[in-house]
Computed example of a mutant assay.
Amino acid sequence: MILTIGLLGMSTDVLAHAVAQGDKGYIQEITGINLIAFTYLGAKHMVTGYDHLLFLLGVIFFLYRMQHIAIYVSLFALGHSTTMLLGVYFNVGINSYLIDAIIGLSIVYKALDNIGAYQRWFGFQPNTKAATLIFGFFHGFGLSTKIIEYDISPDGLIPNLLAFNVGVEIGQLVALAMILILMSFWRKTDGFFRHAYTANVAMMSAGFLLMGYQLTGYFVA
């Protein structure tokens, strides 16, 4: 609920999957191959990207085995890496408000999945691996859209994009490690299963809130 309250206090610009203004200016100004800089920017974006982290939290919420976590995280990484790289390279952009609304929807989807809503409502379980990959594609388009808007220099584009993607994956691993450490402590408490439903409802609320902000921004902008 703290996260939800925090999101309520954010402006629409903050919720638009944006790269920090300082980083935006840096991206627009530099030319040539800058592998270290773009690796850092990619890692920073993932570690501070609450939308990615909320979805990732939802994905691993009830996963206990490392091989299962690795499969789902790899599918998510494959999805967002593919569309981020191809989207920027082929200059395929999507309205940032609409793509971020879909990213909010991905959080809602996963929270509903975690509380067993689809089985109760529709009597079937969606393919969770396919959903993770598909929503990964949308998360990647969210980032590629912003990079396109910032007019990244074509000089050194491919190496810089690859470095940025490496940074994103490094950031994802760091964020995942932090989430797993916290989850491991929480799972050992007696209240984990008692509060798991509430936690996913709060996550779902944050996703709906993100969707609302983005759709409002789309119609108002």
Rank of each mutant, 00 (worst) to 15 (best):
I181Y: 15
L176H: 14
L176C: 12
R194V: 00
M178D: 14
F185E: 14
H195F: 10
A206G: 03
F185N: 12
A177V: 14
L209D: 07
I181T: 15
A177T: 15
I181D: 13
Y197S: 03
T198D: 08
S205Q: 10
F185Q: 13
I179L: 12
V174S: 13
L209G: 05
F192W: 03
L176A: 13
A202W: 05
M178Y: 15
S184K: 07
M211P: 07
M203D: 09
I179A: 11
R194W: 02
L176K: 14
A206F: 06
K188I: 10
M211V: 04
L210K: 12
I181Q: 14
R187V: 03
A175R: 10
Q214I: 02
M204H: 10
L182E: 14
R194A: 03
A202I: 05
M204F: 09
A206C: 03
R194E: 01
Y197D: 04
S205I: 09
L209E: 05
W186D: 04
G212W: 03
A175K: 05
L182S: 13
Q214G: 03
L180Q: 12
L180I: 10
Y213P: 09
A196T: 08
L180K: 11
L173R: 14
A199H: 08
T189M: 00
Y213W: 11
I181R: 14
L182G: 13
N200W: 02
T198Q: 10
Y197W: 04
M203T: 06
Q214W: 03
F185V: 13
K188E: 12
S184R: 05
A206H: 10
Y213A: 08
A206K: 04
N200A: 04
M204P: 06
W186F: 07
L176R: 14
S184Q: 05
N200E: 05
L176S: 14
H195A: 09
G212Q: 07
S184F: 10
F193C: 05
Y197K: 04
T189Y: 00
